[in-house]
């Protein structure tokens, strides 16, 4: 069962809605969630005094104390495994994994316990845990700091996966995920955390869209781009560039990666007849393959071209001097749009 929608936290009428980056919006969301529910805990490496390596938990330990913001021992299996126990005991842990590539010591606990406890206990045990994972490339980092492991988890039933691409979603989706009674893996586009140009006004009194729903960000007629997380910006930029050359592209932000909400995508493809799925993750056995499979099944007679994909390659993430080649960019997206249009 989905939890009730987020209740607007009380604010004094004089506080104007702030302009926030994605990183700050996540920080505000955590604060709001901790204020709203004393059972919400934050757990992770360096999340206390340091505020996390990306400062997403900045100031929270100072204000909520060491018992609610836990600088844990350095062990991801421990973070997830103990969070599960805490959840069984009635807490709502929000775990921070420092970087995408470091989730794997916790993989067993996520796949074997977190995902399955509700099913195994015939619904008697709920594990309302959020695992926040900064993901994706483009930050010029060393190995294991730029990966997109979402498909490894979307293949696991029992987990919900979401990804935000803008500050307003970051603010609401994280709070909604914390209120959700299912485990939610929350993928954060780390390269956009502190991008000033993406700042948005976040109104804590607004009412958010549902968490597990895709959203059409830009409507168009010639082809549809479906994507999520960091690639949303790439696709929006591609749509703007295409528009200048007279090609109208529709852009859909998936937001929920598992379970997928593909109805808006089907609807879009029935209109445009062409779909390009864009993601930084390797293509083999991925979310984009899943989307392609379902769209060809649901929209077979509407398709004017096969579903095409722009993704990372089927290789390990390369040394980051090469990441601009590896990551889907404007040129590759537009090139693929051309292929779809001239199929």
């Amino acid at each position: 069962m989905m939890a009730a929608p987020a209740k607007a936290p009380e604010r004094s009428a004089t506080t104007a809605a702030p302009q926030l980056t994605i990183g700050k919006a996540l920080n505000h969301a955590l604060r709001a969630a901790m204020e709203a529910d004393p059972k919400v805990l934050i757990m992770g490496e360096d999340v206390g005094k340091l505020g996390g390596v990306f400062r997403i938990t900045d100031g929270l330990q100072k204000d909520f104390g060491e018992h609610r913001v836990l600088d844990t021992p350095l062990a991801e299996s421990g973070i997830i495994g103990t969070a599960i126990g805490l959840a069984v005991r009635g807490f709502r842990p929000v775990c921070e994994i420092q970087f995408d590539g470091f989730v794997f010591p916790g993989f067993d606990q996520i796949v074997s316990q977190l995902a399955k406890l509700h099913f195994r206990s015939q619904g008697k045990v709920k594990v309302p845990i959020v695992v926040r994972i900064p993901f994706g490339g483009g930050i010029g980092a060393v190995e294991h700091h730029s990966e997109s492991p979402e498909s490894l988890f979307s293949h696991t039933a029992g987990l919900r996966l979401v990804s935000c691409s803008n500050p307003v979603d970051a603010y609401w989706m994280l709070q909604q995920a914390i209120r959700c009674d299912d485990p939610v893996l929350f993928f954060e586009p780390k390269k956009l955390y502190h991008t000033g140009s993406l700042k948005e006004t976040v109104d804590p009194t607004a009412s958010p869209d549902p968490l597990f729903a895709s959203r059409v960000l830009r409507s168009g007629t010639a082809a549809t781009l479906v994507t999520y997380g960091p690639s949303v910006r790439v696709c929006l930029d591609a749509a703007i560039a295409a528009a200048e050359e007279g090609t109208s592209l529709e852009v859909i932000d998936l937001r929920t990666l598992s379970p997928l909400d593909l109805e808006p995508v089907f609807e879009s493809v029935r209109k445009t007849g062409r779909l390009i799925a864009v993601s930084e993750a390797p293509s083999e056995s991925s979310l984009t393959s899943e989307i392609a499979a379902r769209v060809q099944q649901e929209c077979f007679y509407s398709l004017e071209a096969p579903v095409l994909r722009v993704t990372g390659f089927d290789t390990p993430y390369p040394p980051t001097k090469l990441e601009e080649y590896y990551l889907p960019d404007l040129d590759r997206v537009l090139h693929t749009v051309d292929r779809a249009l001239t199929w």
């Binding site: 590539g101 010591p105 010029g140 294991h144 040394p319």
Partner: peptide, 27 residues
């Protein structure tokens, strides 16, 4: 230097040097 210049993951022959590649994933 290549590791930290982000131009490669390991710049030596670990077998010949008897020095395994650097490991970043703790443990």
């Amino acid at each position: 230097l290549g590791i930290f210049r982000c131009s490669d993951h390991s710049g030596w022959d670990p077998v010949a040097a008897r020095f395994h590649p650097y490991t970043i994933v703790i443990g």
